[in-house]
Amino acid sequence: MKAAPEAQRRLLDLQAVDTTLAQLAHRRKSLPEIAEIDAVAREISALEDERVRAQVVVDDLDRDIARLEKDIDQVRQRKDKDQKRLDAGGSLREQEGLQHELTSLKRRQSELEDAELELMEKRETAEAALTEVRGRLAAAVERRTDAERRRDEAYTDIAKELEFKTQARGPLAADLPADLVTLYDKIRTDTGMGAALFYAGRCGACRIELYGADLNRVKSSPKDEVVRCEECRRIMVRTSESGL
């Protein structure tokens, strides 16, 4: 393929724009905030599971405490009823029976109240654990929100740069021979780079140094000849900097 040396040189400008576009696209995919958000999301999921388990413990204790309170209330009502019957008088046998039942009810009430106190102490510990995990969960959510904000700000900045570079690429590519751009784009699509400067006997793309016949081929090729690297197949652009 033939192309004016100046057109070939301007391929380097086009490649510089495309390299920047590729770097911006890679940067968008590999923002540190993305990994941070994923890590915090996993942390939030684990903390949410922990919060649910802690809540279940509190709820179970609340249910047990409520059951004990109901039992204690029933015992108190029975005591009050027996006390009123005892105060109202009656036969000796009935009085002795009431006294015995009151003693049993007092003992039962004490046992229930002790059990309730123990559960209430456990609930206090469980509630503290629930509050602590809620705090860690809220902090993790806040970190994720902050990371998402920073990610979105980076996305906005990158989008502006992409738009600017894309707009710059259009006129640059349009001003070059169509067949040269077609070849360049095909190579760039296949390899990630379409053209590079030939400098100090090396291909600027794959960095392979040329010797003997390969180097002579490049030196002897007409200036308007589009020369490609035998190793990586990229276009090797020769300029005054090439040292030929």
Rank of each mutant, 00 (worst) to 15 (best):
A3W: 02
R9A: 15
R10H: 08
R10S: 01
L11D: 15
L12F: 05
D13Q: 07
A16K: 15
A16V: 04
V17I: 03
T19D: 08
T20L: 12
L21E: 01
L24D: 14
H26C: 06
L31H: 13
L31E: 07
P32L: 05
E33C: 08
A39T: 06
I44W: 02
S45F: 13
A46P: 06
A54R: 11
Q55D: 06
L61Q: 14
D62N: 09
R63H: 15
Q74C: 06
Q74D: 15
Q74E: 15
Q74L: 11
R76F: 13
K79M: 15
K79A: 13
K81N: 09
K81A: 09
K84H: 07
K84Y: 07
A88Q: 06
A88W: 00
L92S: 04
R93Q: 03
E96Q: 14
E96W: 15
G97Q: 11
E101I: 00
E101W: 00
L105N: 02
K106T: 10
S110R: 13
E111S: 09
E111V: 10
E116V: 04
E118Y: 07
K122Y: 03
E124W: 08
E124K: 13
T125E: 14
E127C: 09
G135T: 00
L137V: 00
A140V: 00
T145V: 01
A147W: 00
A147T: 00
E148S: 05
R149W: 13
R151N: 04
E153I: 07
D157A: 11
A159H: 05
K160I: 14
L162Y: 03
F164L: 08
F164I: 12
T166R: 05
T166A: 02
A178H: 10
A178N: 08
D185Y: 11
D185Q: 05
I187G: 03
T189N: 03
D190Y: 05
T191L: 12
G194Y: 08
G194R: 10
A195Y: 00
L197T: 12
F198L: 15
Y199P: 07
Y199N: 15
G204C: 05
A205T: 03
R207K: 08
I208H: 13
E209C: 14
L210C: 02
D214A: 04
V218Y: 07
S220R: 05
S220P: 08
S221W: 09
S221P: 01
P222G: 02
E225T: 13
V226N: 10
E231G: 09
C232S: 06
R233K: 15
R234A: 10
S240I: 14
